[in-house]
């Protein structure tokens, strides 16, 4: 079993002034290669904060984080940028696509900032096209985000997360802005990726969605409250009562 994510006493404290908010109060998690993990918990429990640190977008206040064995918690901005580019595909609730930029060029973006094994423009386009095909959007490659539906936008974002062949896919409420049907389509895509061996960590509020994963980590007040096999949706609802 290979640990893709391994954290030790990860903390994040916001507001260095008088009022301090401990968004994370010492999180220990290990996520292994090929796992599909849901992160749950009430609003404000620190899910996004954890995701951002695990996605190397943010740095913890204290604690250690090993990504595929590499200690990233002590890295500087430049190193983190390279790690994000090489290792991580991030999917956001609000898609975060470049406006007035075609789906294809959005998907090509991580390849533009690829530093090792730089690709020619033609190769970049080819790879991006393949990624768009994988999410079923090849026919929309030359459309701008504002010409696409929410579900389609999220699929472009997934293609972008995939294109650089990352070891880890982080998704912060990827279905949060979508209706149930579209959300399920997106989940279908993530399942496909998981089946092909990708490691996926996904934040969700919806028990239905969490139930489709192998493992659920529940955060409460910045601490891991539960960590175990995902339960069927109805069982979770009974737990909540």
């Amino acid at each position: 079993m290979t640990a893709i994510i391994k954290t030790e006493q990860l903390t994040k404290i916001y507001g260095m002034g008088d009022i301090q908010v401990a968004a994370l109060g010492g999180v220990d998690v290990q996520i292994n290669e090929g796992e599909f993990v849901a992160v749950m918990g009430p609003s404000g429990s620190g899910k996004s904060t954890l995701m951002n640190i695990l996605g190397c977008l943010d740095r913890p206040t204290s604690g250690h984080y090993f990504l595929a064995g590499q200690a990233v918690s002590g890295m500087d901005k430049v190193q983190l940028a390279v790690i994000r580019n090489q290792r991580i595909g991030f999917i956001f609730q609000s898609f975060n696509l470049l406006a007035r930029t075609s789906a294809l060029r959005n998907v090509m973006l991580p390849l533009v900032y690829k530093r090792q094994g730089q690709l020619s423009p033609a190769e970049r386009e080819e790879k991006a096209m393949a990624a768009l095909e994988a999410v079923g959007l090849a026919d929309r490659a030359h459309h701008d985000p504002n010409e696409l539906s929410g579900g389609q936008r999220q699929r472009v974002a997934i293609a972008r997360a995939l294109v650089n062949d990352p070891v880890l896919i982080m998704a912060d409420e990827p279905t949060g802005n979508l209706d149930t049907k579209t959300g399920n389509e997106i989940m279908g895509l993530l399942h496909k990726l998981h089946e092909r061996g990708r490691t996926i960590v996904m934040v969700t509020h919806e028990p239905d969605i969490a139930a489709q994963t192998e493992r659920s980590i529940v955060l409460v007040d910045g601490l891991v409250a539960e960590d175990g096999r995902s339960q069927p949706a109805n069982a979770q609802m009974m737990n909540a009562k």
Binding site: A81, R84, N96, A99, L109, P110, Y113
Partner: peptide, 13 residues
């Protein structure tokens, strides 16, 4: 926001 997006996919300072 564009800058943030570029950074998130690996643009360095």
């Amino acid at each position: 926001r564009e800058i943030g997006i570029r950074q998130s996919v690996g643009a360095t300072p």
